[in-house]
Amino acid sequence: MSLGPTNSYTPQAPNEQPYIAFEGISKTYAGGSNTAAIPILQNIDLAIGRGEFVSLIGPSGCGKSTMLKLVAGLTPAGAGKLSIDGMTPANAREIVSFIFQDATLLPWRTVAENVGLRLELERTARFRREEKVASLLELVGLAAAAKSYPRELSGGMKMRVSIARALSTRPRVLLMDEPFAALDEISRDRLNEELLRLQNEQKWTAIFVTHSVSEAVFLSSRVLVMAPHPGRIAYEIPIDLPYPRTAETRMQPAYEDLVAQVSKTLRGVHSL
């Protein structure tokens, strides 16, 4: 089966110091007493530049989410070195935000209180916090819902709250684990466009895990296709569509070609 013009993944020596660098990262989960340890990630080398938007796509069990957890410092690497702007993941937490698949809003708090949670944990003064929360809600178009409770919101609105909360601490790195997987297509497209608008304004670096090929192509400057058993980066597909990308971008033949190319590559990985 031909995979077209896709490059098989070989890590390039970056011409500048990478912002996020995986060097020989491996991760195994200890099995039970009778089973062997299960390799989750094997020898990952990856350099992500400042302000890049990288998507990870691949079959279940290829370690996509584990990659994010490693950067977030939520799980330690078994071997190798991982640095974020020269810092270890544990030290880089202040500049990293994580957006989970579930909006993970606290149901007993209003929208505004949820957005302000991280600032509250940082012990930001109340008046500063309220000011910031108001502008964040404005940013994600939820100013009118400030006093609502999460149960009163649609899935898309919940995710907007989650995004606003993630941006509240002015992160430099945004990790997203299938944030829009549970949304309908229209909401997903709209949130994708907004996400790019926010990135254009705030210039954070993004690692985005998804199962949706079109979403990965639309958002990313680079799509990494991962393969399982053990988890590794199999292919790298640069997405050279110009930014800013809008709803129009999805109509372009170049976009459709890239979606087809990523799909084909992904099918190849699935049949490995």
Binding site: A72, G73, L74, R93, E94, V96, S97, F98, F100, D102, T104, L106, W108, L117, R118, E120, L121, E122, T169
Partner: peptide, 24 residues
């Protein structure tokens, strides 16, 4: 992931208890 959210914000054990576990 809710616990992870608090951990990533370097929340103290007391903050996790009062702001997350008990209300939950």
């Amino acid at each position: 992931n809710m616990v992870n959210l608090f951990i990533m914000q370097n929340a103290s054990a007391a903050q996790i208890l009062w702001k997350l576990r008990l209300p939950h």
